[in-house]
Design a protein around this nucleic acid. Structure first.
Lengths: 156, 156
DNA sequence: TATTGTTATACTCTATAACTATA
DNA sequence: TATAGTTATAGAGTATAACAATA
């Protein structure tokens, strides 16, 4: 099927990925409007990556791919909104621990619930098996936590 | 295999999609460094969506999801770099037509070539058949011209 | 009056640089 | 001296509002 823009060439994979992200973003922003005003994608990203016992700013920065400064800015609204608390680290006077509050956990669960709903809807539309393959492919492309994209020798 | 962040819960699909986009972006930015200095994702996005005969600013804005203002700003470096030319529309004195130049077509082809190389690499890593299914799923999620995305509602 | 495009301005997100406090 | 975090500032990307010219 050709469209006037791409002709007989394939639709760029970037367009497909970005379209999928756009739908998810719109969905999550409806969640923000309904229950968590002011939370944007970057906040949800952080909420779902905070471990139960909290984590240091530096480690969270490395883990998230943000600079410490960008992380601190993204974290401020989360702290103001009561989603996380930032505590001194007893083992190092310089360090601070970021930890989810109950409300933060609530938002975390809500986000995961919405993502799950979106994925179930997608699976219904394209077929459960096919969607499972697609998700598996994306997961296989992503190596470990700090993995590099070109890590071809990834063990499955 | 569980990680400390997600436990036994699935890795958020947003993380998978964003990771894939990040790899592609890094790849295309290497192309910018090598051959098309200054071009960013938004410019490539526009280059690959310009039809051969050119398009009006308004239509391109609607098509790209950008406001006319944002589009005009994104277009300026493309015009300065000689990738597109903006011409008056003979059929409407108000309108302007945006059209790819030869250099713009060159960049368009280069981008599509890189995307193709990335996809071939991915297919090799996860298996040709599996990758074909994954791409097909993403394409199927994108509905036709009048289609609407996964319309889901948020419970209050 | 509606539409095409422009000018002016502001907000979100992230980065680099320079700094303070603690190790 | 190196590390954890902060303050200040800048840039990319996109939006809204107000405007101009043409239909």
């Amino acid at each position: 099927m050709s469209d006037p823009v791409n002709g007989d060439r394939p639709v760029p994979v970037t367009a497909l990925l970005e379209q999928a992200m756009t739908w998810i973003r719109d969905d999550l922003y409806a969640l923000s409007d309904a229950r968590f005003p002011g939370l944007r994608m970057r906040h949800y990203r952080l909420l779902v990556m905070l471990p139960p016992d909290g984590e240091r700013l530096s480690r969270l920065a490395a883990h998230s791919g943000l600079t410490k400064q960008a992380l601190a800015q993204a974290l401020a609204p989360l702290e103001d909104g009561g989603y996380v608390e930032v505590l001194p680290d007893a083992s190092d006077g310089r360090a601070r621990l970021v930890r989810l509050t109950d409300r933060g956990r609530e938002a975390d669960e809500a986000v995961r619930g919405r993502l799950d709903a979106v994925e179930r809807d997608w699976a219904r539309r394209v077929g459960e098996e096919r969607y499972a393959v697609a998700r598996g492919v994306l997961a296989d492309l992503a190596p470990g936590p700090a993995g590099s994209p070109a890590a071809v020798t990834v063990e499955e």
